[in-house]
Design a protein around this nucleic acid. Structure first.
Lengths: 145, 145
DNA sequence: TTAGCTGCAAAGCGTTTGCACATGT
DNA sequence: ACATGTGCAAACGCTTTGCAGCTAA
């Protein structure tokens, strides 16, 4: 946690960028929310306490978060980019309900392991991967139709 | 192949839609290219032989392909939607080279199986899934740096 | 002082939609 | 004849960019 803040600050100074009030505010709020925020989600949250903050600044700052490795980019096919703070924990994947949009995280080391093997079989050096399973959650199955 | 054309035609008539010259042309061209076409890719190919065809028609027709199950929607994070004809074969996933963009398809029934299990564990009724592994292909690894 | 940052508004880009005309049923 | 499809251009939603003024270094 404090770790990621440090990572960001180190990156900022290494790159000759500047530490600004806005960047600190956005960093703080971004790390507070551990779920899959769209840029708009974050912007709206920020506006409540800091009405002056601009949309463009949020976009630009999230880009930096992703560049310095404290945020991961997600895209669930709804046309909005989402960001998620990187965890020190293992990689996880997502189960997404097609009806209500609920997102559940899961981990499965067996799947991870098989992916590494598939990449190796094709001569690929694996950089990252993403697995998304779309379906209906228990609630939406029972909603009937 | 003739199968998917039939699927499309059946769907068209079932839904009270119309069989038009444009839809047949787009269907033909779409099925001819078995790779991951963006709407623009397809549009440009079509324009060569059929200059009169409109961008909107291509979008609308691909939507129908996806609705009737002869096309699958892909999104590799470059901001363009891609479509791929569904195969009668088993589901496959993708290995994508971050450097040159090469896309390799692979299948792994063990991974499929584990996904089904994960969904079940969380009470999800699985509808679809996608797995993308990003990395560097053999060539790009050797380009060195 | 000077590079870099901010907020705004405008532009960009892929995609969708409204409309008048055309076409399949 | 009438519902549906087409092509065009305009609208759309998300994201990026140009710019004049501002701020950290």
């Amino acid at each position: 946690m404090g770790d990621r803040k440090q990572t960001f600050r180190d990156y900022i100074s290494q790159q000759g960028l500047k530490s600004t009030r806005q960047r600190e505010i956005i960093l703080e709020e971004f790390l507070r929310c551990h779920s899959h925020l769209s840029t708009e989600d974050l912007y709206l949250k920020l506006r409540k306490k800091h009405p002056g903050i601009g949309y463009a600044t949020v976009y630009r700052t999230l880009k930096i978060f992703s560049d310095c490795g404290i945020a991961e980019v997600r895209n669930f096919g709804d046309g909005q980019t989402r960001y998620e703070p990187t965890t020190c924990e293992e990689h996880h994947d997502h189960l997404i309900c097609k009806d209500c949009g609920t997102i559940i995280e899961f981990k499965d080391p067996r799947i991870e392991q098989l992916q590494v093997q598939v990449a190796k079989d094709h001569g690929f050096a694996i950089v990252s991967h993403r697995l998304e399973i779309f379906g209906l959650c228990t609630k939406c199955q029972n909603k009937g139709h």
